[in-house]
Amino acid sequence: MAMLEVNNLSIQFGGLRAVDGFQVSIEKGRLYGLIGPNGAGKTTVFNLLTGVYKPTEGVIRLDGEDITGKSTIEINRAGIARTFQNIRLFGAMSVLDNVKAGLHNDHKYSTLAGILRLPSYFKAEKEMNEKAMELLRVFGLDGEAEYLASNLPYGKQRKLEIARAMATNPKLLLLDEPAAGMNPNETAELMKTIHFVRDNFDMTILLIEHDMKLVSGICEELTVLNFGQVLCQGKTAEVLSNPQVITAYLGE
């Protein structure tokens, strides 16, 4: 069974059908790419998958479970975590606390236990600290754990967003242009990290990207979106050599 199965997903903004009959099937453990020109509807697909927008039509199944129309919180609990094209960190919180916020539903203790500093507080906080530091190490951010998130350089902010999403222990990770604003070195390093995450955390990853080097380097399959519709879908090499794709997207 596919990890993510989407059928006939559509949303209408006034007169604009931003996503129109989108469908995709992503196997567990895939590194899958979603590409397309500016304004094609890629981010809107992410917003539909995560419940930020409710679809006008269509069905979304995660690991067999129908999650169509559920709230963002329910969908995160069901197992989808994401990053944002315009970075959305908790800027005035420390790097460590950003990841710990991601662990919110994983290590629970009551508000009263927190205020009264009961043993459950110390136990859960210790576990959270250890887990968060482990994740920060994966992204090379452990040295900056105490920094304010907004004081990190751009590339590291993007990585922190991935670490925070990973902290929610998702089945499917959605990355919206993870390499945007990174230099070639940072991008190469990010590609390694994404691979590492997929292999070591048993993760399925769907990513939006404009950087063709990154896309062809790590994505095993691709969907090309154009004007809200699927233009082409399949193995990366085949998709990238499709003449329609070249004219619609790569040619320009």
């Binding site: 995560t50 930020v52 709230s71 963002t72 919180i73 995160n76 609990r77 975590a81 994401r82 944002f84 959305r88 960190l89 908790f90 800027g91 005035a92 919180m93 916020a101 991601g102 919110h104 539903n105 925070r164 999403a165 902290a167 929610t168």
Partner: peptide
């Protein structure tokens, strides 16, 4: 700090 991001991590 960020309402949408908070929801995206299940808060």
């Amino acid at each position: 700090d960020n309402r949408i991001a908070a929801e995206s991590v299940g808060i």
